[in-house]
Nucleic acid binder design. Structure first.
Lengths: 210, 210
DNA sequence: CTTTTATCGATATCGTTTTATCAATTATAC
DNA sequence: GTATAATTGATAAAACGATATCGATAAAAG
């Protein structure tokens, strides 16, 4: 299957397709058209067609659409949801603890196996390791994914430790732009950025009404 | 100030600038150049210059840069961080509770004043209201922002209730595309989408090494 | 006062993503 | 078997965002 060469934007839409396809699998009669998916998810039809064609092994059939089973399998393959990825989390503050207690990650293929903070402790019944043990544990467990939930000031230094020890993908919740070596991906999950967009929209909507 | 007509991407970068500018306000000597900010945040210089020029009242001064005070004020204005926005949260499952217990939102101008779920209860010492009271409370408190943390299946129906009652901005954590009336903004914060990007990157990096 | 130089602002170029268009294909109906 | 209609796949156009280039400006230095 074509795993590489999928645009980031397409990749971000795949979970939406998957969710819809799985929850409607039975009633779709085996095939579904790009137009139907687009209408359901409120997306552009051509965009959906291109996305689906990218991930689906089999071609779409005129007058019928794409075979739902192949679509689901193709998307799952691209997302790697069949093999759970082990990850570590650095920063056991408020947000870090909240994420640790969130049970929904495994469903998406992420398994947080260890958490770290400045000093040892426990949170939600899970052991928090001292930062000094970071390098050791990453390399021994051969971890490739890390979640960063430390304050912005320390994000880069934590990031440096991580990449030096072979981390390839970082899910960054700190409000800081991280510099990483080539080949390492940073996915920023900045609550503040999202709130920025929301809040600005709200403000201009309110202004309109004055 | 120019609140409307700011691109979404610029808007998402504003919190980064703000964070950097505030934490370096004293040592910057009053003025800072776009190049300096760009270097610190690992961004393109021209991009930063354009962004800063968009939000700053005063023009940048050759050989000096932008006046930091004006920058901070301009960004805060755009983000509406001076007036905390009251919000409600619907869905007190794992993720919802995690967000409720997260103390960092007010810092960014969001204040969750009430939470709702199918049935009443308490979480983290906060009262959870029954969904039936949603309409009433939204209109009485004149809430304009809502956070959705319900399962994908019920996201659209919750969303409909919200928009019917005057909600203008929705922060959607459910893996579902929401259809909203014109003028309502949905900001998707899909963990699954982010994980999709991370996981796919990891997969293709690992494939390279084989 | 003049020269130098850092910085901005504007314009142009480039690449990516989205959207539009249309011919090719094939199931379905007659 | 032929016509019809839905749907795809491919190509083109448009929109958007990021980056490069360069002249204009004003502070600083001589």
């Amino acid at each position: 299957m074509k795993i590489q060469g999928i645009s980031t934007q397409t990749l971000r839409r795949l979970p939406y397709y998957l969710n819809y396809l799985v929850s409607n699998e039975t009633e779709s009669g085996g095939y579904i058209s790009a137009a139907a998916v687009a209408a359901a998810l409120n997306l552009n039809e051509v965009q959906v067609r291109k996305d689906l064609a990218t991930v689906c092994q089999t071609r779409g059939v005129p007058k019928k659409g794409f075979f739902v089973g192949d679509l689901i399998e193709g998307i799952r393959d691209c997302l790697g949801q069949n093999n759970v990825n082990d990850a570590i989390l650095v920063g056991a503050g408020n947000l870090g603890r909240a994420l640790l207690s969130y049970k929904g990650f495994e469903q998406y293929g992420l398994n947080i196996v260890a958490a770290f903070d400045l000093k040892e402790g426990t949170a939600n019944g899970k052991k928090i390791f001292a930062l000094s043990k970071l390098s050791d544990i990453i390399s021994r467990l051969n971890i490739k994914i890390a979640v960063i939930t430390v304050p912005a000031e320390s994000a880069q230094s934590v990031c440096d430790i991580l990449t030096r020890n072979g981390i390839l993908a970082i899910w960054n919740f700190a409000p800081a732009h991280l510099k990483v070596p080539y080949g390492v991906l940073v996915q920023n999950e900045n609550m503040a950025s999202s709130l920025a967009v929301l809040s600005n929209h709200l403000k201009s909507e309110m202004d309109k009404k004055l």
